[in-house]
Design a protein around this nucleic acid. Structure first.
Lengths: 155, 155
DNA sequence: TATTGTTATACTCTATAACTATA
DNA sequence: TATAGTTATAGAGTATAACAATA
């Protein structure tokens, strides 16, 4: 049926397509810099950032939730980070079903080793072509979209 | 050394983080709708859109360039689309090294089968929380970023 | 020789389901 | 019984390098 057609506005289509393509062009660059400077991939870097923000450590479930990844997917990534010596995983004394994952000194160093180049990359790519005002608008709009998406997930 | 630290502004960090997380939350939704409504994955849908916009057909190299993917990666995706009957691939009579990839009627139908739900999904997610003016600003800024990224690739 | 594309191969990431162990 | 996490397994997607065919 679909008697009425409700296409997106030209602006909306342009925004979505540009969003997708910017992501497609940014991701490989970001990934390459993370690997070169710190020896970690994007998902691993994400885990490190989550753990750096939680010095007391996080359970696997908590990290998996932050990362929007399955339990087994997180086990895989944390295994890789343990192999690299960047995090530890230990039984939680309060509940022995749980594991507490903590970032190590080397993990903090890895973030530090990556950081300057990461920032420089973002500055030279994502932020090079827009004004400070544009960036403020981007942050505001993207954050609104983000809050809406989270609310749809019931958070 | 790095005597001077040049961190990103809070707005810039917020914009980048929100960009990443919006992408992380949008992609699985988009993917699920494409698979459910049209039986195709995101990369396959991208190939179909590129071919729909080029009724005369495209060579593998042209499609690979549009998709920002390696030659072998594109061969893999086009093989999948051929299996589904959504595209054809034939020797180019003008240069027999080349293959001309064309979308089939079923491929056009697959795009049509996906389209309404795809638009509805975008409307209910990405565009639900921002005004038309915000969308126009988003389109403008993201397009500027995109042009800059393309220029860095020498295009 | 250079270009177009495929094939062989390997690797990363992710998920589902079955399982272990604790609560 | 329910929860936290791991393991076994499989599958999608991607890339590199070697190759075949054509220009």
């Amino acid at each position: 049926m679909a008697e009425l057609d409700h296409p997106l506005s030209p602006d909306a289509m342009a925004a979505w397509r540009a969003f997708l393509e910017v992501g497609a062009l940014m991701m490989p660059r970001v990934e390459a810099q993370l690997v070169e400077a710190g020896g970690v991939t994007s998902p691993q870097y994400g885990v490190l950032l989550a753990l750096q923000a939680a010095p007391q450590g996080l359970t696997m479930t908590q990290v998996a939730h932050d990362m929007v990844v399955s339990k087994s997917g997180l086990t895989y990534q944390v295994d890789r980070l343990i192999d690299l010596g960047l995090v530890t995983r230990a039984v939680d004394p309060d509940d022995e079903r749980r594991r507490v994952v903590r970032i190590t000194r080397d993990g903090i160093d890895a973030i530090a080793a990556v950081k300057d180049g990461h920032v420089e990359l973002l500055r030279a790519t994502f932020f090079a072509a827009v004004t400070d005002d544009d960036v403020a608008d981007l942050a505001r709009s993207l954050h609104r979209i983000l809050r809406h998406l989270r609310s749809l997930d019931g958070e």
